[in-house]
């Protein structure tokens, strides 16, 4: 089991459930390192004072905030003092319906695991049981490192899952699209077109199976490394084309539907 990122407790009324937090997502990306080309030595980043031209230790670094008229310097101690007291607890504020939450709010997924023997295990089992029964999601807050997070707790596969959530002001409104914003009143599609598009969607409908999709990018990068190791030359790619809009919407809908029915649409 991976290392826990945080431990504390979920506070739910006057009940405290001691828990440890684990990431529910892992990074499987192929990572590259920066190298010095002639010697193949790893590149390191050094922090240097621009005035003294000397390397600076971590503990001698302060934080600068750019105000309208100059820079304010604050220390780690000041920042730590401003942190809210709730730093060891996840305070549940309310229980809401999952369907009401726009999926755009969900940010990073985690799992909570009971930490602290029988008392913790019982309180955890109780919270999981009533949440699963109610079908509701618990909304709360907590502080991880120096940031306050809005979180949603719900039951996944019998365990309590936590997601950090974006605050409303972290999500732009569709108005940010400017001239590209669709005009729902003016761009009324014809029923004929929509019916045909619905038929196409239904033809391509299936149940969601996450394991049906593999990360082809990762596979290709691994293959590239193998080829390069054997000394093969790799050519630079051509720029991709931007597809042209269709001139006859109905004709392309019909053509796509026909291809979908014969199973030749994808691939």
């Amino acid at each position: 089991m991976a290392r826990s990122l945080w431990s504390g407790s979920v506070s739910f009324g006057l009940v405290n459930v001691p828990v440890a937090l684990y990431s529910a997502a892992r990074d499987l990306d192929v990572h590259f390192h920066q190298l010095h080309e002639p010697t193949k030595a790893r590149i390191e980043v050094r922090r240097v004072c621009s005035k003294e031209n000397k390397e600076v230790d971590w503990e001698d670094i302060a934080h600068g905030w750019d105000a309208d008229d100059g820079c304010v310097m604050v220390t780690d101690d000041e920042l730590a003092a401003l942190e809210p007291r709730r730093t060891r607890t996840i305070d549940i504020e309310r229980f809401v319906a999952l369907a009401d939450i726009d999926p755009m709010h969900f940010d990073h997924p985690y799992f909570l695991v009971p930490a602290g023997g029988e008392g913790a295990a019982r309180a955890y089992a109780l919270l999981a049981k009533v949440m699963e029964r109610s079908g509701r999601v618990a909304i709360g807050r907590f502080v991880l490192r120096t940031k306050e997070y809005l979180v949603a707790l719900r039951v996944r596969e019998g365990a309590i899952a936590l997601s950090t959530m974006l605050f409303a002001d972290e999500i732009r409104s569709p108005g940010a699209l400017g001239a590209a914003q669709p005009d729902v009143k003016k761009d009324k599609p014809t029923k004929r077109h929509v019916d045909q598009a619905v038929a196409l969607i239904e033809e391509l409908s299936t149940d969601f199976d996450a394991s049906a999709y593999e990360d082809r990018h990762r596979k290709r990068l691994e293959a590239l490394v193998k080829r390069k190791r054997k000394g093969e030359e790799i050519e630079a790619p051509a720029e991709p084309e931007t597809p042209e809009p269709v001139s006859d919407l109905m004709a392309s809908l019909r053509e796509s539907l026909k291809a979908a029915r014969s199973g030749t649409l994808v691939g």
Partner: peptide, 13 residues
């Protein structure tokens, strides 16, 4: 925040 050298307030490069 930007990184600054605590003793003289100079920017860190």
């Amino acid at each position: 925040f930007r990184e600054l050298h605590a003793s003289d307030g100079a920017p860190i490069e």
